[in-house]
Amino acid sequence: MKKAIGSTPDHGLRCQPMNMAFTDGRLNPMPELRLVIPTGSIVAQATDGNEAGMCHSILICAPFVAVIPVGAQLATVADNDPNGWVIALKPGVLGRFSQVAFDAVPKWSRFWDPFLREAADTLAALHHADLIDAACADAFADVVSVHIALRYGHCAGAAEPDMPLTRQMLTRIQAFVHEHIAETILVEQLAVLVHMSASNFARVFKTATGNPPHLYVTLERVKFARTMLCQQTPPLVEVGARAGFQTQQHFTEVFHRYTGVTPRAFRLAHRNAGG
């Protein structure tokens, strides 16, 4: 990484490349949460112990991200070079509505969030081009903080007008799909999460999202595969398997159907664009 992002008297340093966040103690006393966004093949481990003797530990690798308490210690697994971003989530810079939601954001959470991965990619591109400064970093931190608060915080349980499924239910379904993306996912499994019959769930889910459950799962598999193709360099057959496709042929057909290109062509285009 080229250089650290400077701090300001009002906000302080709230967004850092991961390798600097491992050694820069100035980040630790300020925020209440930190968002860890590893890139490439980095595997980070966050650990923390409390006064009761209980210890929390979580492993984070792309394409997943994690929310951890400010006091947690970060380290790499197998001495990997720590590439990625650590964003301090400071609720004091948010609006009143988001501050209320932020109080309920769960600590020690790991999830796959395409928006946050896109934000990390944009941050990396700006940093490598030497275009990022404290104001830009703070702006990103604010946007990410609001996103986390609204998506995973207290107000995520608010029901949309005339919607049978609440945001909290939809988030629960999304979390289950992301956690089990490599496995077979049945409509019946999703229906159980929100205490509905499979037929009723399929109907209200399509009303709420515009897509039937099986198409939603398929599109999430494609998104996950796209993220892997951009972030890492495993064999294509491994990408397909980790995204939940049963065969390489099925992976290629479905990926081409919804993106317009094959997985191999998508990877080559992304490499060329990055080079």
Rank of each mutant, 00 (worst) to 15 (best):
H180T: 01
T23A: 12
R271H: 12
L165M: 04
I181L: 09
P91M: 07
S7G: 03
T259W: 04
R96D: 12
I5P: 03
A208M: 01
N19E: 08
F176E: 05
A88P: 02
W85S: 15
V70L: 14
L33C: 09
G84E: 06
F201A: 07
W112I: 00
I58C: 09
T218L: 06
H214W: 07
L89F: 05
T218H: 01
D79Q: 13
L236Y: 08
C55H: 11
A156C: 07
R110M: 07
A120C: 06
T76N: 08
M18A: 13
T247E: 07
A241K: 07
V146F: 06
L215N: 10
N19F: 12
A119K: 15
T209V: 00
N211S: 13
Q246P: 01
L74N: 02
L236H: 03
T209D: 01
F201M: 00
K223G: 03
G275V: 12
C61F: 15
V143M: 14
L190S: 13
P29W: 09
A52Q: 14
F224P: 05
A75V: 11
A243V: 04
K223W: 14
A44F: 01
R34Y: 01
V77P: 02
I42K: 13
Q16P: 05
L131A: 15
C230D: 08
E238G: 08
R221D: 06
Q246F: 00
H127W: 05
L268A: 14
P263R: 08
L13Y: 07
T122D: 10
P234F: 04
F266P: 05
R110I: 05
G40H: 07
Q231V: 03
A52T: 00
L59W: 11
Q99F: 02
A182W: 01
R203Q: 11
D113A: 15
N50T: 01
Q249G: 08
A269Y: 03
M54S: 13
W112T: 05
F64N: 04
F140N: 10
P63G: 12
M1I: 08
C155H: 15
V43Y: 00
I148H: 08
C136V: 14
H127P: 09
L13K: 11
I87L: 08
I148K: 09
T209L: 03
R14H: 06
F111I: 00
D121S: 11
Q231A: 15
R34G: 11
G92Y: 07
L193M: 09
V43W: 03
R117C: 09
A46D: 04
H127V: 06
R34F: 00
R257F: 10
V65E: 02
I5N: 05
P91R: 12
L123T: 04
P17A: 12
H154G: 11
M54E: 12
E51S: 13
V261K: 13
A175Y: 12
V204A: 10
V43K: 07
K107I: 09
A141Q: 02
E160C: 10
V192N: 15
V43L: 01
R271S: 15
R271W: 02
D162S: 10
D113L: 08
G157K: 12
C61L: 14
I58D: 06
N272E: 11
V177R: 08
L268Y: 00
